[in-house]
């Protein structure tokens, strides 16, 4: 079957099977390999993309479900610029191996679009659908706080690490 949709602003049509998962449409058919696969039960969130502006798990959606939809992947989040969340992850060491990072960034960007002044607790629960095994989330939280401050026009808090 054919599926037509908009991905990162571009209209695309692609041949898929009924069973093709959205993440495989993106990765295999469209070559957008920034969206990752980490589990098979919809738990890890590495595959998070925006469908019609909302963060969802692309490994737990069929490609067929997004017919006519607008999909944004990490590659299209800021189109070569850095979204404040991406900047925050870089500035506050929000990633190590980087595998969970695209999904984490997409979830965080969705969260901050709704609320640019979340509490630490809201941030922590807001990324509960994204698992990271490297960072203990500490600097991911700081990265999102950095991004939120930037989006509000505030000065981000100083980093936690001690420079000697």
């Amino acid at each position: 079957m054919e599926v037509s949709l908009t991905v990162n602003g571009q209209a695309v049509t692609s041949e898929v099977e009924a069973r093709t998962l959205l993440v495989h449409l993106l990765r295999e058919n469209l070559g957008l390999t920034g969206t990752h696969v980490g589990c098979e039960t919809g738990y890890c969130g590495a595959c998070t993309v925006h469908v019609d502006g909302t963060p969802v798990k692309s490994c737990t959606m069929l490609a067929a479900q997004v017919e006519g939809a607008e999909v944004t992947t990490v590659e299209g989040l800021a189109n070569g610029e850095l979204h404040p969340v991406q900047e925050g992850f870089w500035e506050r060491h929000g990633l190590q191996c980087g595998y969970c990072t695209p999904g984490m960034i997409m979830t965080a960007a969705g969260m901050l679009a709704d609320n640019d002044n979340p509490s630490e607790d809201e941030i922590r629960h807001g990324i509960e659908g994204n698992l990271c095994r490297c960072t203990g989330y500490h600097n991911i939280v700081r990265a999102i706080e950095y991004a939120a401050a930037k989006m509000r026009g505030d000065e981000p808090a100083a980093p936690d690490w001690e420079v000697v």
């Binding site: 969130g45 963060p55 969802v56 798990k57 959606m61 979830t107 969705g110 807001g126 509960e128 659908g129």
Partner: peptide, 9 residues
Amino acid sequence: TGDPQVRNQ
């Protein structure tokens, strides 16, 4: 229920 992305979909 679930997590944020699950609640979105």
